[in-house]
Design a protein around this nucleic acid. Structure first.
Lengths: 342, 342
DNA sequence: TAAAATTACACAAACGTTTGCACAACAATC
DNA sequence: GATTGTTGTGCAAACGTTTGTGTAATTTTA
């Protein structure tokens, strides 16, 4: 039946002592007598007293809350990430305010505004695909609230970020194929305007040149990542004068499309052609025809790392100008996972 | 360089007017002159003033925040749900405080406690598998904060909840198979202690009896949902005197295991045996050998619905005792999705 | 032209909690 | 027995904002 939550005042009045004494008693302050402490705590328990965090946060000017803005919560990469973020926040006694931008720059801007008004102690964000102005982010920085970028990093100087190194992952992947004896390795890459495509390309080239092989641009196709686009790329490869014996695909969806199409042409997967992909999808391991290896980006781990950095920034000793000007640029190495029994 | 955010006080001092005037001016109160309003708003903009929501929430005793506790954020069912929840919260101008229990009853209890201290205006929760005491939930109810249960509903009276009707979905699924001519339909069900297993069973039986067929208990196997358990169940079916021509599986993972095993025995999927499953996994549509139909539970829609109900409860007119005693028990109908080109 | 109504603002309390400071009571020290 | 030290408690300010009430100055009404 208790309508309003119990306050410290009520306890004070009932025990006929001052609120400050009650406050100190509950916080085990040394200057409060043992008897009083006991009395206060007993009464607090009886009345189901629970400190009003909003009041405390307001008073202390700290919300003990981090804001998290992600493009799409239903995407497995981001849901794994938020899981990691929440785990760290929980561990370090912070609270998570969550929002999704749906890859809409306007909504994102609004959300950032809201987070600021909510006085979050820090912000963790993976910017939307459509974001192309960055003033609101700069404004956020000016407000002295730490901000850590995650996975999708805006092209801005002097920021903290956590991202995966797709270049090294791709390098490993192509290297793996080269060591297996492949010499003609095709890549179905993404659109050229994505940083992710460039990183994959660079990793590919590095691996080839490290084996003293020349980079053949005709073996790297840019694809819109749709099924139709994938089939087109596959046709291109299959009719190529240098028909690839192995193919690296931009992501698991592309791998699926490619494998499905190849099978329809009676090509034996991982025999006629080896496939390697990037692990975006948790299910892929359960499937019949899967890539022989996969570049894992560890979104859960990345989320944890980003949250840890953000909380470190929040709790860093103030006024240390040396630290103030240092930026975390953490690259989580991606790793080539070679399928079991393959 | 602005260290602390601008306050209403500073604006007041700079303009040499009172804080109340500033507050009213910013809120377009009628009793403030036009000139003053303009001056205040201009100054507010110049100083990048943003109202301190924490202060307002504290003052008004409302946090405009809903707490969401889910077992596992990385699970696609829940990540789809949280996406729906966030969308509704955003639309209705609420903020989402997110936490995951990892199916740990103790952690869940602690999180509920925290949510209460954070003074969330309402709580949306899918209880953990290990939760078996419900006093903390009752305590939450007593605090007059509305609470809506989602998907995993505790066995408690007088609660609001949103869940999917697996019975009707299963009924539809089995009915679909019956209409296709199947008469021997096997079911790989889950453990008997799950409500979800019972619902599936009931739907199965209903469909059979509605076709004047007797329920054969030997065609319904309980399985621990692992790959080994699934294979065991499949062996059982394949050696059964009434070998099923169609099989309903508890979830997509079980379907995958079963289909993979069947294929290894050169059984033609959806020809020798038709499979029907439940849509937990987004990827299933992209696969080669998939169930011919799937019971969709619409987690995104369910999340939206649950959030809408919670916000309705939060904003319902007070003191209306008739409404106070009414409980939302919303069952979102699951739906049989029949695979394309099948 | 005096009374009434309107306009435009200021004052102060309130929300729940923490915390610096003051101060009383008592014990210990010289 | 005066001084210092210790222990336990209360007072009041502060955080940023909203809002009820008070009150001048101005305008309208009779």
């Amino acid at each position: 039946m208790s309508d309003k939550p119990t306050t410290i005042k009520e306890i004070a009045k009932l025990l006929d002592i001052s609120v400050s004494t009650v406050s100190r008693a509950l916080n085990d302050h040394s200057s409060i007598g043992l008897i009083t402490k006991m009395r206060v705590k007993k009464m607090a328990k009886e009345l189901n007293y629970e400190p009003n965090q909003r009041a405390i946060q307001f008073l202390q000017g700290k919300s003990h809350t981090i804001g998290v803005i992600l493009p799409e919560l239903a995407e497995s990469f981001f849901s794994a990430a938020i899981s990691g973020i929440e785990d760290i926040a929980y561990k370090r006694n912070y609270t998570v305010l969550l929002a999704q931008s749906h890859d809409d720059a306007d909504r994102e801007k609004l959300l950032i505004e809201k987070m600021k008004m909510q006085r979050v102690d820090g912000l963790l964000i993976s910017v939307s695909k459509t974001t192309n102005t960055y003033e609101h982010l700069e404004a956020f920085k000016k407000s002295n609230i730490p901000i850590v970028f995650f996975d999708r990093i805006p092209p801005v100087k002097n920021i903290h970020f956590v991202a995966s190194n797709l270049e090294s992952g791709t390098f490993e992947a192509v290297n793996f194929l080269l060591k297996k004896g492949h010499r003609t390795i095709g890549m179905i890459n993404g659109p050229t305007n994505l940083v992710a495509s460039t990183e994959r390309k660079n990793g590919y080239i590095k691996a080839m040149t490290s084996h003293r092989l020349k980079f053949d641009p005709s073996l790297m196709l840019n694809c819109d990542l749709t099924e139709a686009g994938t089939i087109e790329a596959m046709d291109n490869f299959l009719n190529h004068k240098r028909k690839p014996t192995a193919i690296v695909t931009f992501n698991d969806y592309v791998a699926l499309f490619a494998i499905r199409y190849a099978r329809s042409l009676n090509i034996e997967i991982n025999k006629d052609i080896d496939f390697v992909s990037y692990a975006n999808l948790p299910l892929i391991n359960y499937m019949d025809y899967t890539p022989i290896a996969s570049v894992e980006q560890f979104p859960y781990k990345q989320g944890k790392k980003a949250a840890d950095i953000l909380l470190d920034l929040i709790n860093k000793p103030k006024g240390d100008s040396e630290i103030e000007t240092a930026y975390y640029n953490v690259v989580v190495e991606s790793e080539l996972i070679i399928g079991k029994d393959k």
